[in-house]
Amino acid sequence: MTTSNTHLTDTTTSAELDALASAGALRPIGAPAGGGPIADEDELRAILGGRPNLGSAHATGAGASARRQVRLPEHLNAALDDYAAAHSTTPSAVIRDALTAYLNAA
């Protein structure tokens, strides 16, 4: 069994990927929760799907998270990173919480 995915490219087709998977020629990149085989396509999408959006059941109800970009002075950016690390969260979560608190107080 090949243990490298170096033969994959951006142009690898679904059929080629299926053939490689059937031949056992793909290196696993992770395991499903609890180990064992992946139950269905939904579980596979959950493993490989990337970062979840805040949309459909959360922020916008539209299925996609709105994205805003802001520029921060270096000292504020460093303070944000330090705060997020100290509280085991992400800078994005801190910004969302702070903005929610600010707008609710207004």
Rank of each mutant, 00 (worst) to 15 (best):
M1H: 10
M1Y: 04
T3M: 03
S4E: 12
T6D: 14
H7Q: 14
L8R: 02
L8N: 09
T12V: 07
T13A: 08
A15R: 08
E16S: 01
L17W: 14
L17A: 11
D18H: 04
A19T: 12
L20V: 01
S22K: 14
A23C: 04
A23T: 02
G24D: 08
G24P: 10
A25F: 00
A25N: 10
L26Q: 05
R27M: 04
P28K: 02
P28W: 01
I29M: 09
I29H: 03
I29S: 04
A31L: 15
A31Y: 15
A31P: 00
A33H: 05
A33P: 06
G35D: 07
P37Q: 09
I38F: 14
A39Y: 02
D40G: 05
D42V: 09
D42Y: 09
R45H: 10
R45F: 13
R45Q: 07
A46P: 00
A46C: 01
I47V: 03
I47C: 06
I47A: 08
I47H: 07
L48D: 03
G50I: 08
L54Q: 12
L54G: 15
G55P: 06
S56H: 10
A57H: 12
H58V: 00
H58W: 08
A59G: 01
G61R: 10
A62Q: 11
A62E: 15
G63H: 06
A64M: 09
S65Y: 08
A66N: 07
Q69T: 15
Q69E: 14
V70A: 13
R71Y: 11
P73K: 00
P73L: 06
E74H: 01
E74T: 12
H75I: 00
L76T: 00
N77H: 15
A78W: 00
L80P: 05
A85P: 00
A85T: 06
A86V: 00
S88A: 11
T89V: 05
T89G: 05
T89R: 03
T89F: 03
T89Y: 07
P91E: 06
P91Y: 03
A93E: 13
I95Y: 01
D97R: 15
D97L: 07
L99R: 00
L99F: 13
T100A: 14
A101M: 04
A101W: 08
Y102Q: 08
L103S: 03
L103A: 12
N104M: 07
N104Q: 12
A105P: 00
A106E: 11
